[in-house]
Design a protein around this nucleic acid. Sequence first.
DNA 1: CAGTATCCACGCTGATACTG
DNA 2: CAGTATCAGCGTGGATACTG
Lengths: 133, 133
Amino acid sequence: MPTQTAAQRRAEARTAYNAYVAECPARALLDRISDKWVSLLLIALAESPQRYSDLSRTVAGVSPKMLTQTLRAMERDGLVARTVTPEVPVRVDYALTALGETLLPVMRAIKTWAETHMPDVAEARTRFDETRP
Amino acid sequence: MPTQTAAQRRAEARTAYNAYVAECPARALLDRISDKWVSLLLIALAESPQRYSDLSRTVAGVSPKMLTQTLRAMERDGLVARTVTPEVPVRVDYALTALGETLLPVMRAIKTWAETHMPDVAEARTRFDETRP
DNA sequence: CAGTATCCACGCTGATACTG
DNA sequence: CAGTATCAGCGTGGATACTG
């Protein structure tokens, strides 16, 4: 009987991995920008600052819950600025912060790779799927 | 009574969004590389080609199921090459393809941004959390 | 207008056990 | 060694309804 089972060792390793992820900036960033709505909001706001209702139209298909939730998270991260104007009814504007803007080149790098190489990926997939039925 | 309810309009928009995502190369790429294990395997294999069991050690905490599943997906996408050597017992080697290698600079760009700006994000979070209890 | 609150369903991960 | 098969649990997203 081993001192540790394989599962125990994996569990321990996974804990270590989680700690690692929590600290690893690159993974943390990936978790952010890969979020379904974050990237779309980033792009939408890169065009121009917008109000809440504008965004819900620009980023089609988003539910109010997710829109709020995502904007809140991005605000917390310092990526977007939320400005409330106390009119009646209230007006809330969202805009990218300077920090948020620095993310755009990264997004562009991703976009460039994708446009350059995703056809290759698509082709690879087709070949893969063809060779094994 | 409106021709379409808000929900119907959102549902329709979401369908459109899904179609958009399916075509948008950048989003497709993000979905790939943001995968929990894909990025780690990418980095592990960037160091050197490895066998299945090597990977399960290098990438600590991964279950056999996820390891196989992730490697299979990456192979299908043409990012890694799987080489079977019919010894006894079988030997299977995994390595990055040329296509897979082209992804590394993108990963590095992400890493660089993260190292440069994640401290700002962390600070923003702290401020945000402090101001609202 | 700009959200909040609640609930449900589903997908995906991980544990576990077994095999050529 | 290099996987496959099966199942349970949980987080996450979406629908929906309500509010200052």
